[in-house]
Simulated assay, not measured.
Amino acid sequence: MVQKHKVLFVRTDAQKPPSHQVTHIGGTMPDGTPWSISAEEAISSIQSGRFAFFMHREDQGAERIVVAHNPVYGAFLRAENDRQMPKRLMQLPEIEQNNHY
């Protein structure tokens, strides 16, 4: 059975190509424990059917996070309703690099 996780924040790297700037996604478990996973781990988990990720937008409700493909740079994460770049996903709050989630 697929485990569903709500994404509350991202970690980005502006030095990467725009499609690949989201390097980590994260949130909190039902017990309040924070979690974080690299974009590569999230992509693999989505593709294997292990995890499903979603984000919640006040104006649109729940939106799945999906794997997209850039012909030059490969797989990346984006919100389901994003077209080519992860614009909606990148609108989530940024968690700082030194935060150990």
Rank of each mutant, 00 (worst) to 15 (best):
K16S: 06
D59C: 03
A62E: 11
F76I: 03
A79W: 02
N70Y: 03
H20P: 02
R88G: 10
T33C: 08
R78K: 15
Q21G: 03
M85F: 12
H69D: 08
G61L: 06
D59A: 14
V72G: 00
P18Y: 04
K4C: 10
G32W: 01
A79I: 06
G32N: 06
E41N: 15
K6W: 04
S48A: 15
E58W: 03
Q97E: 05
T28L: 13
K4G: 08
Q60D: 09
A39D: 12
Q97T: 03
T23L: 00
G26D: 03
V72F: 05
V72L: 12
Q15A: 14
S36C: 10
P86A: 14
A14W: 04
Q15P: 00
H69C: 04
A62L: 07
R64W: 07
A42N: 05
P18F: 07
G61F: 02
A79M: 05
G26N: 04
N98V: 07
M85G: 02
H20K: 10
M90L: 13
F9N: 12
L77D: 02
Q60M: 13
S44Y: 06
H56D: 09
S38T: 14
Y101S: 15
I37E: 14
V66K: 01
R57H: 00
F54K: 11
G26M: 09
R11D: 00
M55C: 08
F9Q: 11
H69E: 12
L92E: 01
S48P: 05
P30L: 05
A52R: 02
I37K: 11
I37F: 12
I25R: 13
S48N: 14
G74R: 12
Q47S: 08
R64G: 01
S19I: 00
L8N: 14
K16M: 10
R64P: 02
P86D: 06
D31F: 11
F54N: 07
A14E: 13
H20A: 01
V22G: 08
A52L: 06
Q15F: 07
I65L: 09
P30Q: 02
V67Q: 06
K16Y: 06
G27L: 00
S38E: 00
L89K: 06
S38D: 03
V10W: 01
G26I: 11
E58C: 01
G49E: 03
G27V: 02
R88L: 09
V72Y: 06
F76S: 03
R83T: 07
Q84P: 01
R88F: 02
S36F: 03
R57W: 00
R11E: 07
A14L: 08
E40S: 11
V67C: 14
G49N: 04
D31C: 12
Q91R: 13
I46H: 09
W35G: 02
I95E: 09
H69W: 07
N99H: 09
I65V: 15
R64K: 12
F76R: 00
V72A: 12
G32L: 07
R57C: 00
P93K: 13
